[in-house]
Design a binder for these strands. Sequence first.
DNA 1: ACACGTCGGGACGCAACCGTACCGTCGTTG
DNA 2: CAACGACGGTACGGTTGCGTCCCGACGTGT
Lengths: 212, 212
Amino acid sequence: MTSEKRRTPAGAAVLRGDITRAIRRALMQELAAVGYGRLSIEAVARRAGVSKTAIYRRWSSKLDLVLETVVAAAGSKLPALDTGTLRGDLALLFQVVAHALSHPLASQIIPDLLAEAARNPTIDQTLQQVLRAKQQEIGGRLIARAVERGELPVGTDPDAAVDLIVGPLYWRLAIARTPLTGTYLETLVESVAAGLAAETALPRQRDASVGG
Amino acid sequence: MTSEKRRTPAGAAVLRGDITRAIRRALMQELAAVGYGRLSIEAVARRAGVSKTAIYRRWSSKLDLVLETVVAAAGSKLPALDTGTLRGDLALLFQVVAHALSHPLASQIIPDLLAEAARNPTIDQTLQQVLRAKQQEIGGRLIARAVERGELPVGTDPDAAVDLIVGPLYWRLAIARTPLTGTYLETLVESVAAGLAAETALPRQRDASVGG
DNA sequence: ACACGTCGGGACGCAACCGTACCGTCGTTG
DNA sequence: CAACGACGGTACGGTTGCGTCCCGACGTGT
């Protein structure tokens, strides 16, 4: 009904970008401060200095607000990442990841949402698409290039490789929250590179009817 | 006041162990279901089939209840763990960790509490003492034995080693929640062993006046 | 210059939870 | 057998947050 009679919104009747940004910023801070479980729209509104209505006009629910904002914040990052050697790629990747996880907000929000994803399917799906898919794609390409160069054996499992690449640094920065020491990243590059190379060392041994 | 006149509690005036156990069990389930942030005493009481008073008589607060119960549940585990070889120790450790993290309750509670620890100092301290201290001790001994046997170079950093050992498996099971495939753990043993061995390959180059 | 229509803000009803006070129940002690 | 005293459960005020409704303000298009 009322089909095409309305003219387009204009004047004061349009969302103000500065308020949208203030809400987004307040959300990230609230999320880091209290976590998704205790996140309240009222607290976000208070912190942003706006009213609840301002938020509900833009997003339909708490989940919508969080996912849309997080996706927007996480999207469009990571450079091309192709240095020509496995160790170079790893070093660059680690620097990027370490830089991202060193951000106080990110280091609190990411583990929180990942934990929440274990019990909220919608969050799980979204993070799956935004974070892990990109992660696997990057990891997969990194491995594929290394295999082409002959730095890694053919048949290297990309999934296991991603675990080996991401796991230690994530554990240290996001879980243990131990600060990086001077040569930590360089050492980690060596360890992970060696670990990746060793990955396929075991599976093939003589015959081996691969049982359970 | 009223110093020593009271006689010791007796009769019905004593905490019932079955109710205490029911509360503990309900707490773990609630914690896995909604997380620490949304945990409510009322929900725990409902799930346990007891009254709130029964909980408040035993623990002073939500935090007290959670920490005491989690510590009790996490304490006193892990066998001696000394198989005679680095790979043997790793394989055994991975099996234990994988088994623990495969428990549906544990795999939801642990990441949740670790994320909460980033913003709650009390939780942080407690987990630090209960989980990470034990972890570092075990990892440290594992490394030390391997160094003694000559399987790892002298000067291997135990902290970095723990990251390398725990990170990948934790990432896969607790964060990515990818199921283990048949030979995953065995492959991981090879990768991590190789990674550990490579850890000290880089730092020493020529002179290097060891700073920091 | 006027009319339009959405904006931001305050107020409201509803629901959930916290922590406590009170009350009847129960089993041991003397 | 009687009295004691802490137990478990219900009921209560106070607080917080959700989602909605109504209001005056505002700036562009006619």
